[in-house]
Design a protein around this nucleic acid. Sequence first.
DNA 1: AGAAGCTACCGTGTTACGCAAGGTACTGTG
DNA 2: CACAGTACCTTGCGTAACACGGTAGCTTCT
Lengths: 111, 111
Amino acid sequence: MRRGVIEFCVLALLDRREHYGFELVQQLSRADGLLISEGTMYPLLSRLRRDGLVQTEWRESSAGPPRKYYRLTPTGSDALQRYRQQWELFRDAVDAIIDERQERHNESEQP
Amino acid sequence: MRRGVIEFCVLALLDRREHYGFELVQQLSRADGLLISEGTMYPLLSRLRRDGLVQTEWRESSAGPPRKYYRLTPTGSDALQRYRQQWELFRDAVDAIIDERQERHNESEQP
DNA sequence: AGAAGCTACCGTGTTACGCAAGGTACTGTG
DNA sequence: CACAGTACCTTGCGTAACACGGTAGCTTCT
């Protein structure tokens, strides 16, 4: 169901401020209906990096192992904007389909 | 982006009235953001049938080749209801994430 | 009558996403 | 010292969406 949308959500979160991977997993899992695992997140972040949508920076943590912080690039911002439009179109299209219950179609197609 | 949602939309359309495959492709493609091809639809319908969510019936057309009509089974109706709840959760979760722009988190996590 | 084009069905192979499972390493606690 | 928590990562699997190709009936045009 959420195929491709996780990428969108990650970009949206990174638009607010920079995050590290583990943190993103927690943020998204907090939201009902968006539970994801690390095995989903890290490959996704690698893809985003490979495609130049994010850039990374290692930083030490005062408690625990070092963290890899991700930040949006200009390319990433552009992609996010496109995703946003696409999402709204998509969301409204689905809502339209599931809302029109028992709509009367007078297209009885027998000539 | 629309992974898994097409199935949901097809069930929703079939909840209104029965349809044949080619018609479903056209209905969904009419909606912006839900363009799909026959190569997507027919395997999907086969899956739905295999899993008992729909039942089929061949019927002659007054113009053109015969059509295979699909109708929801009770199992399909149940699945649709579950999908509906799931979709609303999912949609609202995504909207929440992309709407809260620059939200102030006073969780500066350096102890 | 023949050719072209639309309708309507179906399957195969590829790609890529999400996930479960497993692995490494550092820090703090009992 | 062992264990739990944090934080990173990879491999392999299942499967959905798609491009592509194929079959066959009906209509239309010449």
